[in-house]
Every structure is written in C-alpha cells, then in structure tokens.
C-alpha cells in the first residue's frame, strides 16, 4: 500500500466557519473547582514558606536532601528520615524568556516577559531544582549558573504558597 494512492479522511475547516455560522458547534464550559490536599511534606513546605524559610527532606540511605520535600524517597523507595532547612539562595540551572501566557495568549505589548527558571537550591543535593521565576533582572543578563536569592513577600502578605517567594533575583557582588 502507498499512502499517495489512497483517499485519506479528515476534512479541514477554518475557525471562521464557526463564527460565520457555516458550521455548527456546541460550546460549553464546565465550571468545576478543586481543593487539593497538601499532605505532610508539602504542607510543612508551605508553612515554612510562610515563615520565610525553605525546608527539605533528607533520605538517610542515599543521603539526598530533597526539595520539594517528600515523605518517601522515590530513588530508594523508602520513607525519608529528617527535615532539613536549606538556604533561600541557589543558582540558575536553566531559564526561558517567555512571551506567551498559560493559555497560549500573548503577553500585552510593553509587559515584561515571564522569566521561568529551574533554580538549584543551596543546601539541597546537587542538581535538586525547583521551578520558579526570576525578577529584578534584564532578560538578556540572565545566565545559566547565575547565583540568585529569593525575593519574599512581606510577612503579613504571605499565605503559605510557593508564591510567597515573589521571584528569585541575582545576588549582587
């Protein structure tokens, strides 16, 4: 069989055909909400973020200090052993300069791009990173390996969320 010699299915249409009423479709938006339980590991992580601290969990078998903290070590597949405070500094493992929003819409003209990054946190095991964003930095000045520090919300504004850290900013000097 050669595909070139066959009649293939699927009939393309343009989005405008819906708007012009040439094709009918049904648009519905289910309005569901979820409340996600944190569990003991992320629960403590969030409580500590509210206090302006970052906490990790240690596995005494592989000796990894893991962030985000977890009650089991996915490598050794056994319970983790200890809570360990780590620093609120780290280095940029990788980053992006992003002009689109979560739903693929574009950022507004003149708005600053999103600056997502993987930050390797000081005090956690080598290569242990978290997803966060960068701030107080010109996009073109960002480098892999750059040292950064958490910029925290004011204590009274913190709510026990990853966004209690506003962003990570370059460490001067």
């Amino acid at each position: 069989m050669e595909l070139d010699k066959k009649e293939l299915g699927a009939t393309h249409y343009k989005e405008s055909a819906l708007k012009e009423g040439k094709l009918l479709s049904l648009a519905k938006q289910p309005k569901l909400q979820y409340a996600w339980d944190n569990g003991p590991a992320i629960g403590r992580y969030l409580e500590e973020l509210k206090e302006g601290r970052i906490i990790a969990r240690k596995c005494n078998k592989c000796r990894r200090i893991m962030i985000p903290p977890r009650m089991f070590c996915e490598l050794c597949w056994r319970p983790t052993d200890e809570w360990v405070y780590v620093k609120d500094t780290g280095k940029v493992n990788t980053f992006s300069i992003c002009y689109v929003n979560w739903d693929a819409s574009r950022i507004k003209k003149g708005d600053k791009p999103h600056l997502p990054a993987v930050i390797e946190i000081d005090g956690a095991s080598e290569g242990m990173g978290i997803l966060h964003v960068l701030g107080e930095v010109e996009p073109e000045k960002i480098k892999i390996g750059m040292k950064v520090k958490a910029a925290w919300k004011k204590p009274e504004e913190r709510e026990g969320a990853i966004t209690d850290i506003l962003y990570f900013k370059p460490v001067r000097g």
């Binding site: 979820y34 996600w36 944190n38 992320i42 992580y45 969030l46 985000p68 990788t94 980053f95 992006s96 992003c98 689109v100 929003n101 979560w102 739903d103 693929a104 819409s105 999103h114 997502p116 990054a117 993987v118 978290i130 997803l131 966060h132 964003v133 969320a161 990853i162 966004t163």
Partner: peptide, 29 residues
C-alpha cells in the same frame, strides 16, 4: 482558546501551577 491551556494541569497543582506555567516552559527550559 487553545489546547495548550489544557496542559497547565500536568504541572504540580500546589508547587508549580501557582506560577501560571505554560507547556512551552518545560521545552524552553
């Protein structure tokens, strides 16, 4: 508005989704 939005919920709901990630982030990173 775009199927890309459906990917937001593949990120961890508590430690990542609050940062409003788009799928392209992980590829760009």
């Amino acid at each position: 508005p775009h199927p890309q939005g459906a990917f937001k919920t593949i990120f961890d709901h508590t430690t990542e989704q609050a940062l409003d990630p788009t799928l392209i982030w992980i590829f760009a990173l």
